[in-house]
Nucleic acid binder design. Structure first.
Length: 565
RNA sequence: GCGCCCGUAGCUCAACGGAUAGAGCAGCAGCCUUCGAAGCUGUUGGUGGGGGUUCGAUUCCCUCCGGGCGCACCA
């Protein structure tokens, strides 16, 4: 890679000029400048200027002079007020394009080879709706998993689902009430009640109906000791309905979990862990709590006054369980940012009782999907399900489709649009979901990228056998061609950096810029029916590699690339 | 009140402490008699206020203003 070559040459030159500068190769960065002043640039002269107490511009000149003619592929080195700018030759670009066209997994790196990483995400609760918040967690988590895979790690996708707890009791209570009124045995009605309306009703009544609150708490206890057969039946039924529903959605979204944990499996462990650490957890007002104030945090309840473990305790147990059973090198937990503060308490507790787990656990939070009216709440029913969201997006796509599109393709485009709009911004931020405004299907959008891919593939399909002819790489001289190749060369760096910093938006931006350059090339140069067969073949090679890299780039984002859209 | 996060163009978002702060949408002006117009080209427009650190600050620190989330038995 040219960046590495430049870096090495810089390190050597700097060492020769100033043996004691203390500037190592790892301190030197070669970047593609965001302006068009150079192909690659370096700013080490500023650092050296500081260390040597001398003028950066002069230092840059000295370095540039020492490097002249020493880096293969670089034919021009300039300085501009301290920056050192490098220009590469078309010949170098041609050679590199040919190289990457032969690589099977271009873009992958092996920086995490041999490592096992668990990524927990989505975490929907049975008995509640799978809404666009889960869609967000799923999209981001899936991309993190794919970024780690692209860096060579073995990734285990984890889904942790709350099959016990107050929300289940609320849903069952609500369903019972509705069933009494409706006297309906229709499975579809039952399904709807249990998965959506039941929880809503239970949660609402819980807040201002003392009788309901009491009954729900009783149900919660019964759920733990399994003493009531009617509740057991409703529970079992609802659980399998929920899982069926979730699996259907995962399939749609392109996620497949390797490990599924249930809260019910870890509740017992949770109690055990808490009880074996009386030095850390204290009794307070009938509950067992962790006094976070000693560590600049706040107090959290781990076991409630009914003796049942709450979220924090179960989360503690599930994180321990991951390491007991799978021994990962790293465990990443993706959640909404509303639980950031709880997670800090949890991390502190883990540091105290299972430090080895704590040191290998990392919490990543994402923002909320918000409605223009405010926060979404499944309690009040002010919620948009993933299904209806995807459905609405498909409807919107119908407006701009030029020909008859198959439903599966339309769905791939709709999901691509949704995923891209989530991933193009940094994960910590909220998305204000205003359907007409925030979900783009034109411009910087998923469909634009898929369209570009389909367009490139259409050329390749028409070219047929011309692809296999001997490409005359030297014929790629247009600016649009060279710019495209330069961008293609960046792909491995972008993947590696995004995986290190967990920044899906960098991949999204890269893909978008790639599409821009590819479209620019498409408009500027006519590819097919060229009397110069070698040139046509070289251009087709560029089309092919661009399409492949775009497809891989989108695949990292979990976005499909249909051949036709 | 305390803690954490955020504030960039009319709107939605980018920008390892680097050069002239980039895109998309919306607006305006163009491009379908050759490969897919879900496209391409051009254009208008911006870092909440005030200090500080630095050769260099959207980025780091302080402060003020504005918004979000959390602050004990829900997750």
């Amino acid at each position: 890679m040219i960046k590495q070559d430049i870096k090495k040459a810089l390190a050597v030159a700097i060492h020769e000029l100033w043996p004691n500068s203390g500037l190592a190769e790892t301190d030197i960065e070669v970047v593609r400048p965001n302006n068009n002043q150079a192909d690659y640039a370096n700013s080490s002269a500023f650092v050296l200027g500081k260390r040597l107490s001398s003028n950066p511009a002069e230092i840059a000149l000295k370095i540039a002079g020492a490097l002249k003619g020493k880096i293969p592929g670089v034919n021009k080195i300039e300085t501009a007020s301290g920056f050192i700018n490098f220009f590469v030759t078309p010949g170098y670009l041609h050679e590199e394009l040919l190289n990457i066209s032969k690589q099977e997994h271009y873009g992958r790196n092996d920086s995490l080879k041999g490592k096992t990483i668990m990524v927990e995400y989505t975490d929907p609760n049975p008995f509640k709706l799978f809404h666009i918040g889960h869609l967000m967690s799923n999209t981001i988590g899936e991309t993190i998993a794919r970024l780690y895979t692209a860096s060579g790690a073995k990734v285990l996708r984890v889904n942790y689902q709350g099959d016990v707890g107050m929300h289940v009791a609320k849903a069952i209570w609500g369903a019972q009430q509705s069933l009494k009124i409706l006297k309906s045995g229709d499975p579809a009605v039952f399904r709807k009640i249990l998965l959506g309306g039941g929880y809503m009703k239970g949660a609402t009544e819980f807040e201002h109906n003392e009788q309901a609150k009491k009954e729900i708490e009783e149900i919660n206890t019964k759920l733990y000791d399994k003493s009531d057969s009617e509740i057991n039946k409703l529970y079992k039924e609802g659980l399998s309905l929920s899982f069926e529903e979730f699996d259907r959605i995962y399939k749609k979204l392109g996620t497949k979990f390797d490990v599924k944990f249930l809260e019910s499996e870890v509740a017992g462990d949770a109690l055990k862990i808490i009880k074996t650490h009386p030095d850390i957890f204290k009794e307070s007002e009938g509950a067992i709590v962790f006094k976070g104030e000693d560590y600049g945090l706040h107090t959290r309840v781990f076991i409630n006054s009914k003796g049942l473990p709450v979220y924090e305790a179960k989360e503690l147990a599930v994180n321990k369980k991951k390491f007991d059973e799978y021994r990962p090198d790293l465990s990443v937990v993706v959640t909404g940012n509303e639980i950031n503060e709880y997670f800090k308490v949890l991390m502190k507790v883990m540091e105290l009782i299972i430090p080895d787990v704590a040191s290998k656990t990392r919490h990543i939070s994402h923002g909320m999907m918000r409605l223009p009216s405010g926060k979404m709440s499944s309690r009040t029913g002010d919620v948009i399900t993933a299904d209806s969201f995807i459905g609405q997006t498909k409807e919107k796509l119908k407006e701009i489709e030029s020909n008859e599109t198959e439903d599966a393709t339309r769905e791939a485009v709709a999901i691509g649009a949704i995923k891209y709009s989530i991933l193009k911004q940094s994960p910590g931020r909220d998305i204000i979901f205003d359907f007409d405004k925030s979900l783009a299907v034109k411009g910087d959008s998923g469909p634009y990228l898929q369209y570009t891919y389909a367009r490139l593939k259409a050329i390749l399909a028409k070219a047929g056998e011309a692809i296999s002819q001997n490409p005359d790489m030297a014929k790629l001289t247009e600016e649009s061609e060279l710019n495209l190749i330069k961008h293609l060369l960046e792909f491995p760096d972008v993947i590696k950096e995004s995986s290190e910093t967990l920044s899906p938006q960098h991949v999204a931006l890269y893909d978008f810029e790639l599409a821009n350059l590819a479209n620019n090339f498409y408009e500027k140069v006519y590819i097919l029916n060229d009397e110069d067969a070698g040139r046509m073949s070289a251009r087709l090679l560029l089309v092919r590699v661009s399409a492949e890299v775009l497809s891989h780039g989108l695949s990292v984002l979990g976005i499909k690339t249909p051949e036709r859209i």
